[in-house]
Design a protein around this nucleic acid. Structure first.
Length: 471
RNA sequence: GGCUCGUUCGUCUAGGGGUUAGGACGCCGCCCUCUCAAGGCGGUAACACGAGUUCGAUUCUCGUACGAGCUACCA
């Protein structure tokens, strides 16, 4: 390692809503970048907007981050605890001549904006001592604005490359409100500097804030970090996915039974390409291969279908223990009364055909309870008349005689019955599956029967014989 | 309005002066098969437009169009 300064990044959400996939993706990229470089990933809560910030959202964001496995280093930094630092930075700017008091009324400025004047006309920029004192003495409210110098501001974005803006395009924006509280662009710079952030990785919506922030860095004499702006995640209409726009919260994915790694896997593919044809990653693999230089500039449309597929891929690959943990996290009573070996076998049989934990739970009910009803379409197809009952009765007799209750024996006996009646085995297999599970599809019938056990199979078959066919 | 950024299959993307423009999801078909999945094989489908540079442009340049973001005493 030639890096003398270790990498430090941060994820800085404002607690005005729950964590949604856009934020999760930003957090993920920060996390991957930090871990890839053996650096630190910090969490900062941007709660300077006292009206909209809520503690419950802070809790929810932390919970979501933890569920995803994106654990932050050190203590959470709350901006609301750092007012003194901001005040002192503002004072430095003011006394250094890099900022000034502005006494213009909000109404006036809003009016001129409505008339097409979008920039602050810098009315108060060159007020002299006497004029300032006069305003102050008459008790007028004022805000503090940064004094943007002439010239150009440019920086080299890891993802977007060189971005240059004429300073004439940068407003003398407000750094302190009339109540003295600092604004976003000021606090970000003060915090990123005091936290020692080396790389600022955030959404593309901050590109135009960056040149403003660079002005503050310069005015304060701070080193400027490296910037990397991530393309937006878009809705189907190509507009930025936002809460208003139906951006799903991370919590929602948890409730829908998605595994954290699957969500992360989907998210990492939105904008980043691994420079190979690999599509399925676990977190450690993402860390090993992640590179900001491989992130593209184009916004990516959120596509639930692909997430769904990725989720299925993860289900297949995941260890049975992990799946069990995932199930229990949603439904603690799953598998109650059945031993662990039985539970693991259920998982083994089902995991290739469930795309989410929720689906998994849904598909597994008949392993623990006798079916209460039978899929009516399947009944019509496979058990529409009494001839089926004869086959089943014959098979029940054969089953009772089986001593070694295992897949092979069961299959052998069933095929014998089919042969005896000179019918395709499917004519017996389908109705039996229906009788045992209530549904027309699932894992290999014989493997299912072995697991359910002889008693249960016979009991369920007899029950079905009483109820089917429906006339 | 101004500024900044972007534009390859429906979607996620690879590629890059001469390619049958590659992969993945989805969709369709076939195989496997007791069903459903999974898996295998195949198919469908894209370089926004116009100039210029060039022997040649999807790739480079410039325009145009379209889209997005920012333009708050929100973050």
């Amino acid at each position: 390692m030639t890096d003398m300064i270790s990498t430090k990044v941060r994820f800085a959400p404002s607690p005005t809503g729950e964590l949604h996939i856009g934020g999760a993706r930003t957090a993920l990229f920060n996390y991957l970048f930090a871990k890839h470089h053996n650096g630190k990933f910090f969490l900062r809560i941007e709660d300077t907007d006292r009206e909209r910030s809520k503690d419950e959202f802070t809790d929810q964001i932390c919970e979501s981050l933890n569920w995803l496995g994106l654990h932050w280093d050190g203590e959470i930094l709350f901006q609301s605890n750092r007012i003194k630092e901001y005040q002192s930075a503002i004072q430095t700017l003011l006394s250094g001549g890099n900022a000034y008091r502005c006494f213009c009324s909000k109404d006036l400025l809003e009016k001129s904006r409505a008339e097409g004047v979008y920039q602050y006309p810098r009315t108060c920029r060159n007020l002299n001592e006497n004029e300032i004192r006069k305003h102050l003495n008459s008790g007028e409210n004022y805000v503090i604005r940064i004094k943007i110098p002439e010239g150009q501001t440019s920086y080299n974005d890891i993802i977007y490359g060189h971005v240059t803006v004429n300073n004439s395009e940068i407003d003398d924006f407000i750094i302190a409100r009339s109540d003295g509280s600092p604004t976003y662009n000021l606090v970000v710079v003060v915090d990123d500097h005091s936290m020692g952030i080396t790389h600022v990785i955030r959404g593309e919506d901050h590109i135009s804030n960056t040149s403003k922030q660079i002005q503050i860095y310069k005015a304060l004499g701070f080193d400027i970090p490296v910037f990397a702006h991530l393309p937006m995640i878009l809705g189907p209409d190509k507009k930025r996915l936002s809460k208003r726009h139906g951006a799903p919260g991370v919590q929602q994915f948890k409730n829908d039974g998605y595994l954290p790694d699957a969500l992360l896997n989907y998210l990492v593919l939105l904008g980043w390409n691994p420079d190979s044809e690999q599509e399925i990653f676990i977190l450690d693999e993402m860390i090993a291969k992640f590179d900001l230089a491989q992130v593209n500039k184009k916004g990516a449309v959120y596509d639930e279908k692909k997430l769904y597929w990725i989720s299925g891929q993860h289900m297949q690959r995941l260890g049975n223990k992990n799946i069990l943990d995932g199930i229990l996290a949603i439904n603690q009573s799953w598998g109650n009364g059945f031993n662990i070996q039985y539970q693991y076998t259920v998982i083994e049989l089902l995991k290739v055909r469930a795309k989410s934990i929720l689906e998994f739970i849904d598909q597994s009910v008949y392993f623990f309870n006798d079916p209460e009803e039978y899929d009516s379409k399947a009944v019509g197809k496979h058990w529409s008349n009494n001839s089926v009952n004869d086959f089943i009765n014959t098979f029940i007799n054969k089953m009772e005689a089986i001593e070694n209750w295992n897949t092979e024996q069961i299959e052998k006996e069933l095929r014998n019955v089919a042969e005896k009646y000179e019918i395709p085995a499917g004519r017996i297999i389908h109705p039996i599956r229906l009788a045992l599970s209530g549904v027309p599809n699932g894992p290999s019938l014989f493997a299912m029967m072995e697991l359910l056990g002889k008693e249960t199979c016979i009991r369920r078959l007899n029950k079905a014989l009483k109820l089917l066919p429906k006339s």
